[in-house]
Amino acid sequence: MTDPDRLLSLLEAGLPGSAGRVRRWTNPGPSGQDALLVDPDAALEVALFLRDHPELQLDYCSNVTGVDWLPREVTESVTTTETVGGETKEVTKKVTRTEPGYLEAVYHLYSVALRHGPVILRLRAAGREAPAPLPSLTPVWRSAEFQEREIFDLYGISFSGHPDLRRLLLWDEFEGHPMRKDYVAPDEDGLPAIETAAAKGEANR
């Protein structure tokens, strides 16, 4: 029931025009848990459809998490036809290009009513810059509320439509998003002790 191809055909039947906006993401590992790569603009619509479709009834959003994908170098061989001196031949070249990094939110859905799952949704933000916007799915599944706040806190994805988007685990003055792969915690032991309350002569209680 949760085979991505079947889901895609159901989606196409129920939400015309979703074919271009929802794609299949194949898991290379042996777990066989393939995902649906959902265009952020269509995410809310798709989520509501998945939740309310009588054949799917994905009423239980088990897990929501962020993933930080760094920019990476991809080397691939490109075959082109070149014309050298009037002679056309195929030339294979190794080309290295940099794939831009992005932030991703992953949703694991199950159906408590029909006992199937998981259906995995992946939402990709455009880049890794600070307000990486994605639509919030908290209006669809309330269980995403704290988990999206945690992603906002630790990864810096800002979920539009979230009822209460604040840092969940760290304090408000914290700068940066520590679960990002390039976050480096400053070494505090080398710092001079400045601005101590003791230096100002006040022991607040």
Binding site: N27, Q33, S62
Partner: peptide, 19 residues
């Protein structure tokens, strides 16, 4: 091998999952 997996069990507190 490269890939991903989500597993869950019924822990005494509820559904405990690892991704």
């Amino acid at each position: 091998p490269a890939g991903e997996a989500y597993g869950r069990i019924e822990s005494p507190k509820g559904e405990l999952g690892f991704y």
